[in-house]
């Protein structure tokens, strides 16, 4: 066994001989892929919303309901909420060290992301499909 003065592994970790859970790469990749996708999508959304500032209901509904916008909004919703829950997961894992609170927090943010994403997608589809 290592005789080094500083070993970043805990005694328990050494005793068990376990490595990481091997799930980190998928999380890391998903965070970056959604980030890269969100760069153009966010710019498109912000420009669209700025041009719609103060617009009437009929104008906004016509915009949401046009086929290209509908599909783009659905993609945006999926990317935004996937990216958000991945990011919030890391924040909770970094700062919440009580195992029970951590699991509860993770469940809450993942459930909230799902509820908001489905709610937003349902609203867009309801407008698009009349």
């Amino acid at each position: 066994m290592s005789g080094k003065a500083f070993d970043t592994r805990s005694p328990l970790s050494r005793a068990r001989g376990l490595g990481p859970a091997k799930e980190g790469v998928a999380h890391w990749w998903a965070q970056r892929v959604t980030a890269a996708a969100l760069v153009p999508m966010t710019l498109w959304f912000v420009v669209s919303v700025i041009l719609l500032a103060g617009a009437e209901h009929a104008t906004v509904v016509a915009w949401v309901g046009s086929p290209v916008t509908t599909v783009a909004l659905l993609l945006l919703i999926a990317a935004v909420f996937h990216h958000a829950q991945l990011g919030l997961q890391v924040v909770i894992e970094d700062y919440v060290h009580n195992e029970g609170l951590k699991i509860a927090g993770l469940l809450v943010i993942k459930a909230a992301a799902l509820v908001l994403a489905i709610g937003a997608a349902f609203a867009v589809l309801r407008i698009a499909l009349g």
Partner: peptide, 11 residues
């Protein structure tokens, strides 16, 4: 989400 849901709900 509130903005989108309200747009779907009506004027």
């Amino acid at each position: 989400v509130w903005w989108l849901v309200a747009a779907a709900a009506g004027p």
